[in-house]
Design a protein around this nucleic acid. Structure first.
Lengths: 342, 342
DNA sequence: TTGTATGCGTTATCAC
DNA sequence: GTGATAACGCATACAA
C-alpha cells in the first residue's frame, strides 16, 4: 500500500505550485497554456487520483445525488434512473442509488411505513450528498429548511410534505383504463391495490371517478389487496377464481400485479382476456412480452426522471421551482383486454 | 443556510474536549459513563450531523462499497444486492449501486465492451470507496496492487483477471437444462446467446458438453443471437418461427430472453411447450408468474451476494481469499418444457 | 480516562 | 497568471 499521489507531488513534478495544479484541474481556463500542459503531463506521469474526501471537505459539497428507491429490482425505476442520470451527468454530478426496503421480497415492496428513520438520517446529511431524489412516498423527508440536502419527490410523494414533487397523472391514468374497459362493454370492474400508498390511492380514486361518471361504482367486493408485488397480484387472481359473483375486468395498480394476476388465472384454466380483462399501470419493458401482452398505462419514465433531476438542480442553484409538476400518461392497448363474454 | 454543527460545538455544549466527543462517537467504550451521557445529550441538543468528508479524509477510508451493475433494472441483480447489503450492513459499511451501462434499453445490456475507462477511473479511487463489487464482466478492473480499492467479481468475471471471483456453476447449470430436455425426448436443441460475454460462453459450453455426452451436438444453425435482453429473445423467437428446419427445444442464457422468445412465439400462434420447449437461466421472480411458467435454473442469488460481500470484507481485512468460489445451480421444472410433438 | 495539538489533501483568498 | 497559505471538520498520537 504505497502512499497516494497528492497534488503536491504533481506540483513538484510539473514545477508549479499546488494552486496551479488545483486550478488546472478545476478551471483550466484560468491557467496559461504552457503550465497547463506541464500539469497535464505530470498528472499522467504521477498517476494522480483526486481525493474526493479532501475536495468535498474543502468545497462543502459532494457533487453527488442519491436516489432513494423502494425496491431496486422494480423494473419501473430503471428508465427513471436513466433520465435522472442523464441530467446529472450533464451537470457534472454523480448519481448513486440506495434501496429503502432492504430484504427484497420478504419486506413490504412499496407503500406502507417502514422504519425509515435511520435511512433518512443516513442520507439527510450534507457531507453525503448535495441532494436526494425520493422515489419512495413512505419516506417522510424533513422538509424544514436548514442544513439538509435539497430533495425532490419523484413518482411517489407524501401528502402534506413541502418537498417539491414530480409525478404522473395517476388518477387520470386509471380513469383512462376504466374508460377503455367501459367502452368495450365492461360494467363490473374491479381494482387491485388496497394498501396505504399514495399511488394506489390516487389510481383507485381515478377508477372511482371514472366509474361514477358513467353511472357505475367500485363495489367493495371487487377490491383486491395488493402491494405492487407479483405475489399479491397472484393472490388477487386466486381470490377472483374462487368467487362466482365477480367482475369481468380488473384494473391493477401496476404491471407486476397484473402479470401475477394473469398468471394465477391462466394456470387455473381461465382465459385472459376472454374470461377476464386485465389492465396494468407503468408499461414496464416486459409488459409487451408477456402472454397475453398487457394493456397498460404508459408513464413517461425517462421524462419523469429528467424532470426530477432538473428540478433538483434548480433547487441546488437556488432557483424557484414548482411545488408540483405532473406529466401525462397514455393508455397502451394490447391483448389483455377484450369485450366481456356475455 | 446556517453553519453546520461541528464536534467543537458539541464539545462546548457538553463541557468536554473535541477528542472526547470524537471518541464517544467512534469508540464509546473508551469514554467514562458520565461524560458519554453528557456528550450524547449534547449531540441531540445541538442536532449534530457527522461530516463524512472530514472523517473520510482523516481516516483514509470511506466505509462505502460500490456495486457496479450492468443494468440496474435487471431483476436478476436485486437479490444479489440484498445479500451484499446484508453483510456490509453488519460490518457497519454502506452499499451504493452504480450502473455501468447508462442509457437503458438503448445501450447494450450486458456483455460486450463499452467505453468503461472513465467509469473504472471514477470508482477505482480510494477516496470514493474502500471496495468494489463488479457484477459486470465487461469491466476490466486493474488488478495490479497498489493504491486501488479492493475488488471482487460476482456472477460475471473477466478471463485472465487476478481479481477474486464468486460465481455460479454456469456450465453445469446449462448442462442440466440440456439433460432435462434430452431426457424428455428432445434431440435437436438450440441455444440463445451468441454474444461475447463470459456467462453466455460458459452456458453455451455447458450445452455443448452435455449434448456431446449424449452423442448429440449444437448445430450452428440452432444458435441464436442474444444479449440478455427481452428484445433479443423476441428476435430469436421470430427467427425460429421463420425457419422450417428448426430445433424442438431452445436453451436461453437467461430468463428475460426466454420470456421474450416465448412471447414472440406465442403471439404467432405457436405453442410453448407443445411446439417448442424453452428453458431460461437465473429464476428471476417473474419466471414463475409468466404463462407458461418458465422452466429455468435457479441461482442462489442471495448467497452469491453474501459470499461476494464476505470475500470483499476479508480482502479489506487483509485476509487470504479464494481466487474462485463457485456455487451450485438447480433446475426448476415448470411449464415451458415438455416432450417434443412427434 | 481525558485533553492538546497536528495533519489528512484540497480549494480559495489574498498578495504579488 | 501565479504562488504562498489558511481553512474545511475530524481522528489520533502523545502527554498528562
Amino acid at each position: 500500500m504505497k502512499k497516494p499521489v497528492t497534488i503536491q507531488d504533481v506540483a513538484r513534478a510539473a514545477g508549479v505550485s499546488t494552486a496551479t495544479v488545483s486550478r488546472a484541474l478545476s478551471s483550466p481556463d484560468g491557467v496559461a497554456e504552457p503550465k497547463r500542459r506541464a500539469v497535464e503531463a505530470a498528472l499522467v506521469r504521477t498517476g494522480y487520483q483526486i481525493n474526493h474526501a479532501a475536495r468535498n471537505l474543502r468545497r462543502q459539497r459532494t457533487g453527488v445525488v442519491v436516489a432513494l428507491v423502494p425496491k431496486i429490482s422494480n423494473p419501473f425505476f430503471s428508465r427513471i434512473l436513466d433520465g435522472i442520470d442523464g441530467v446529472l451527468r450533464s451537470e457534472g454530478m454523480t448519481l448513486t442509488v440506495a434501496e429503502t426496503r432492504p430484504g427484497g421480497a420478504s419486506a413490504p415492496t412499496r407503500g406502507g411505513e417502514v422504519n425509515a428513520a435511520p435511512l433518512i438520517a443516513a442520507f439527510n446529511n450534507k457531507s453525503r450528498a448535495d441532494g436526494v431524489i425520493l422515489l419512495d412516498g413512505g419516506l417522510d423527508w424533513p422538509s424544514g429548511g436548514g442544513d439538509v440536502p435539497a430533495a425532490v419527490y419523484a413518482c411517489e410523494w407524501r401528502r402534506g410534505s413541502s418537498v417539491p414533487m414530480v409525478r404522473a397523472e395517476n388518477a387520470r391514468g386509471a380513469a383512462k383504463a376504466v374508460d377503455h374497459l367501459w367502452d368495450i362493454g365492461h360494467r363490473r370492474i374491479g381494482f387491485v391495490g388496497d394498501s396505504r400508498n399514495v399511488l394506489i390511492e390516487e389510481r383507485r380514486r381515478g377508477v372511482e371517478i371514472a366509474l361514477a361518471r358513467r353511472g357505475g361504482r367500485l363495489d367493495p367486493k371487487d377490491l383486491y389487496q395488493g402491494d405492487f408485488s407479483l405475489d399479491s397480484g397472484a393472490r388477487a387472481g386466486a381470490r377472483w377464481l374462487q368467487s362466482t359473483d365477480r367482475p369481468t375486468a380488473i384494473v391493477c395498480a401496476n404491471d407486476e400485479m397484473a402479470i401475477g394476476l394473469i398468471g394465477a388465472v391462466a394456470r387455473s384454466g381461465a382465459q385472459v382476456p376472454k374470461d377476464l380483462s386485465v389492465t396494468g399501470f407503468d408499461d414496464i419493458d416486459i409488459a409487451r412480452h408477456v402472454t397475453p401482452a398487457l394493456t397498460t398505462l404508459h408513464q413517461p419514465r425517462t421524462a419523469l426522471g429528467r424532470l426530477a433531476a432538473r428540478t433538483l438542480v434548480d433547487l441546488l442553484a437556488g432557483r424557484e421551482v414548482d411545488a408540483d409538476q405532473v406529466l401525462d400518461v397514455d393508455l397502451v392497448q394490447r391483448d389483455s383486454t377484450a369485450p366481456p363474454r356475455d
